[in-house]
């Protein structure tokens, strides 16, 4: 290919993108939509259910305080610690539940795989930043709250290119 036609082709290829819709989106105002409510695990079948691995959610009525999630996290991130709660559940005699330090968590989700009682799942909430380290530690009460997440942007591929909309 001659030098001139090489340049012309490059410019032509680039300038086409002047009329194509932009690929990016405005993040804090617009957010990505996720499929499902987050990563879950079915201990009976021994297989996970696809979903985003964000902040955890803890079902207080199912947690037995068995510490398997904390044991799974040992050697990975050591983010889970068991703490005493002021709740009386029949299945949880010791009244202990996991507390997660998101300053350490790597969001691998192996704690969810370890839970045999359908008590610990993950959600779509990924906006966890805070000004202090202490605020990154989520107590069992905080983990019980279902996150409010309303993303609506999705990657769309049309004949004229890919865009977020």
């Amino acid at each position: 290919m001659s030098t001139a036609s090489g340049f012309i082709k490059a410019i032509e290829s680039g300038s086409k993108h002047l009329v194509i819709r932009r690929f990016t989106f405005r993040y804090p105002e617009q957010k990505l939509r996720f499929v499902g409510d987050g990563y879950q695990f079915d201990p009976k079948k021994g297989v996970g259910i696809a979903g985003y691995r964000g902040r955890h959610i803890l079902m207080h009525d199912k947690c037995t305080g068995c510490q398997l999630c904390a044991i799974a996290c040992e050697g990975i991130a050591e983010a889970i610690g068991m703490v005493k709660v002021d709740e009386n559940w029949k299945q949880n005699k010791k009244s202990i539940m996991p507390q997660i330090d998101y300053g350490k968590c790597v969001f691998c989700g192996l704690c969810v795989d370890a839970c045999p009682f359908y008590a610990l799942f993950m959600t779509n909430d990924y906006e966890l930043s805070s000004f202090t380290k202490e605020h990154l530690i989520y107590t069992p009460q905080q983990l019980e709250v279902k996150p409010k997440y309303d993303g609506s942007i999705e990657l769309i591929i049309t004949d004229r290119g890919a865009t977020h909309g």
């Binding site: 297989v47 696809a50 691995r53 969001f107 691998c108 990657l155």
Partner: peptide
């Protein structure tokens, strides 16, 4: 982003997937 989007749907994370595990994969396709 095209493939990150696909992998996010499949594995649940954008870059560090932790998806392959001895014995197979952690979850089925959505």
């Amino acid at each position: 982003e095209l493939f990150i989007d696909l992998l996010e749907r499949l594995t649940g994370a954008r870059v560090t997937h932790a998806y392959n595990i001895p014995g197979g994969v952690r979850n089925d396709m959505p």
